[in-house]
Amino acid sequence: MKVMVCLKQVPHQDARLEIRDDSTWIKEDNIKFEINSYDTYALEEALRIKDANEAEVVVVSVGPDRLTQALRTALGMGADRAVHVNDPAAEGSDSLGIAKILAAVAKEESPDLVITGLMADDDNYSAVPPMLSQLIGMPSATGVLKAEAQDGGYRVERELEGGALEVVDLPQPCLIAVQSGLNQVRYASLKGIMQAKKKPIDVKTAADLGLEGQVGASAQKVKVEKVYVPPKGDTAEMVEGSSEEIASTLVAKIKELGLL
C-alpha cells in the first residue's frame, strides 16, 4: 500500500503580509512559511493508514528551496520519503501546471491512494485536486470529512452546503481531497525529527518529469492581474445610543431592508 500526499507550503498564518510592488503576489522574503493547514489533515489521514496497515507514505510538493522545511516537517511527523520538485522553470505555475507536475510524479510513484487538502490557505483555488484526479485518471471526492477502507476501495463522507453530508464509494486507486478538522493532526516529535534526518528527499526538475515548457509562468492559462486589499467601504452606518436604542434601530433597519 502506497499513499501519496500532496502538500503545499503557504505563508504562516501569523505572518504579516505585504503586497509586492508589482501587485501580482505578496512579498515572500521576510515571512515564515508552514504546511497548508488542509494538507496537514491530508498527511495525518495518510499517517493513520500507515499506523494501521503498514503503508508507505510519500509526500510530494512543488516549490523553491524553502520547501525543504515543510517536507522535513512531514518526514518528522512520520512520512517515509519526500519528492521535491524544485525548479525555477516551474515557478509561476497556475493550478493546471501544478496538477501536471503532481500527475507526473504520481505516474512514477503509482500510489494506491492520493490524499490532498481541499484547498490552499493562501490562494483558495481548490483547483489542483480535481485537475490532478483527471490527469491521472483516478476517481475523486472532495470535501471529505471521513474516509474508511471498504471492499477494496473507500467509503467517504463529503460535506455539502447547508450542513448535509453525502456518502460515496470510491474504488482503489482514487484521490480524496480532505476538509479541515477530519482528524487531530499530530506534531512532529523530537524523536521523529531526529529520525527524519535519514529519510530521503528526492529532488526533481520539470525536465526530469518530461514537462519542459509545459509548466511555469510561460505556460500559465490563468494569469494573476492584480492582488490588492479592497478599500474600506463607505456604506457602513454607525448606530449610536443606549443598548435598547441601538437594538430597536437595528430591528427597524432590518425590517426596512426586508430581511425579516
Binding site: D29, I31, K32, E34, Q69, T73, A188, I193, A196, K197
Partner: peptide, 29 residues
C-alpha cells in the same frame, strides 16, 4: 525569518533539524 532573527541565525547557524524542533514545539505551545 522570525522577527527576532536579526543576524540570520536561522540560515547560517541553526541546522534544519534544530529549526524543525523549534517550530514544532512553537506550534504545540
Amino acid at each position: 525569518m522570525a522577527a527576532t532573527d536579526f543576524l540570520k541565525l536561522d540560515t547560517t547557524h541553526f541546522d534544519a533539524e534544530e529549526i524543525l524542533v523549534r517550530d514544532s514545539v512553537a506550534a504545540w505551545v
